[in-house]
Simulated scan of single mutants.
Amino acid sequence: MTTFHDILGTDRHTPADELKRRYKLLSSRLHPDKGGSKAMMQLLVQAYDKICQGKGHEEAVRTITVKGASSERYQAKCRQLEREVEALQRINDDLTLQLQRDKRQQKSTEELERVAAACEEDLKLLRRENNRLTKQLDEARRKLSESTRTVARFEPERKSDRKADAGTRAPLSQISPVVLNQLKSLGRINLRRSALMAMPLIVVAGLITAGKAPWLSLMAMFDEPPPPPEVKMTILNYNPDDAMPTTPAQEIMPIQAESAVRPLAPRIRLVNLVGHWDLQQYENLPQPYIRVRSEKGSYIVKGCGGHFQYYHNSHLRAGRLAANLIFERHDRHFQVYNIPYGNGSFAANWADSQSLLINNEYFPNQGFVEAYQQLLQRCR
């Protein structure tokens, strides 16, 4: 089907300036005075009007035939033109497909060339590495052969030395019995002399290993005991009352110190709700407080009096604390810190932000204003 857009080569998105330019170009070529035909000029004028009216998608040939183009010659020419347009459209589709195939083939060719270049580089690296290893192997073989030749050259010399020593030694059967007895007596004398010289060393070693007590007892045997010192007593003042018999012991009344009773430390309730402030009451005291829980299990708590408090979960990995966190006490698996100043110490810090970062933990501020208002009402 040939539409009016097909005649002018436009579509519904073509601007008006482009449409007018195409119409002038085709009219200058299809006008009867320029060698064209009246039917083609009428078809062009009608296509331009239809496109301006927004009806460019309608079938052009059928519309012209209905309006009175009754001549068989014009109808045959229109059918021929329609066939030519369809043939050109098929050729255009075939060329588009061929272009897509060529692009895919070119892309695959480029990919293969890139892979081949990478393989070539790897092959060069392997060749260089192979040459280096071959040189190392040749050097090791050369050193091994040199060491083998050196050992082989010195081996005959060693054998000849052993034979010469064996030739110079005299067998024991050729020594006279008198000389043998003298040699044996010299050996026994040397043995006794060595034993006598080693005896003091053995005694000293035994005393050293026994410790300090044997040395002290040995030294005490040679030292005389010193005489006991004389004790002289001088009375500076005498009170007759001191000589009077003492009265029975008076009963000593025990002094009982008043035991300091420590106030109970408030104990918070543990919940699974994360990131939301709410009003609670301590487990062991009838006092209200507000608190919020982080994802890591720590809490920020505010009671009627005092500062905001940070309940640090002890199961977490210990890190460097901020300077405004002051330790107060231990509570179950928490380490309780006061926040007297700095970030998180004022209600305005929590009310003016969506969340605060305390000791690398994010505490959202959802519902803080409502919970703080309820706490103030309960604390009055």
Rank of each mutant, 00 (worst) to 15 (best):
102 D>N: 14
137 L>R: 15
96 T>Q: 14
127 R>T: 13
101 R>E: 09
86 E>K: 08
80 Q>W: 12
117 A>S: 13
115 V>H: 01
77 K>P: 00
116 A>E: 08
137 L>E: 10
117 A>G: 03
129 E>I: 04
103 K>R: 15
94 D>F: 04
103 K>A: 14
81 L>V: 00
114 R>V: 03
122 D>I: 10
95 L>A: 12
132 R>G: 11
104 R>L: 08
98 Q>S: 11
74 Y>E: 07
70 S>Y: 08
77 K>M: 08
112 L>P: 00
77 K>D: 02
125 L>N: 10
82 E>H: 04
102 D>S: 10
117 A>E: 08
128 R>W: 04
101 R>G: 01
79 R>M: 13
127 R>I: 11
114 R>I: 07
130 N>H: 14
101 R>V: 03
80 Q>K: 15
107 K>T: 13
118 A>M: 09
128 R>D: 12
93 D>S: 10
137 L>V: 11
123 L>H: 10
103 K>N: 12
74 Y>Q: 08
74 Y>R: 01
96 T>M: 13
101 R>D: 06
117 A>H: 09
98 Q>K: 14
105 Q>G: 02
123 L>I: 07
77 K>Y: 06
71 S>P: 02
78 C>L: 14
104 R>A: 09
80 Q>N: 10
96 T>K: 15
122 D>A: 12
85 V>M: 15
81 L>I: 03
115 V>M: 05
121 E>Q: 12
106 Q>H: 08
90 R>C: 05
75 Q>E: 02
121 E>N: 06
108 S>V: 03
120 E>R: 09
104 R>I: 03
111 E>H: 01
67 K>L: 15
82 E>M: 08
94 D>P: 00
119 C>Q: 11
96 T>I: 05
93 D>G: 09
111 E>A: 04
79 R>A: 13
98 Q>V: 01
101 R>W: 01
72 E>R: 13
126 L>R: 15
108 S>F: 01
68 G>V: 04
127 R>S: 13
124 K>C: 02
107 K>C: 05
69 A>P: 00
72 E>S: 08
130 N>Y: 09
88 L>D: 06
102 D>A: 15
132 R>T: 14
96 T>P: 00
99 L>T: 03
85 V>K: 13
72 E>G: 11
136 Q>L: 13
121 E>A: 11
137 L>F: 09
70 S>M: 05
105 Q>A: 10
91 I>A: 10
81 L>M: 11
108 S>T: 06
98 Q>M: 06
111 E>W: 00
99 L>A: 13
69 A>I: 07
117 A>Q: 10
127 R>V: 11
135 K>E: 14
128 R>T: 12
98 Q>F: 02
113 E>I: 01
123 L>M: 07
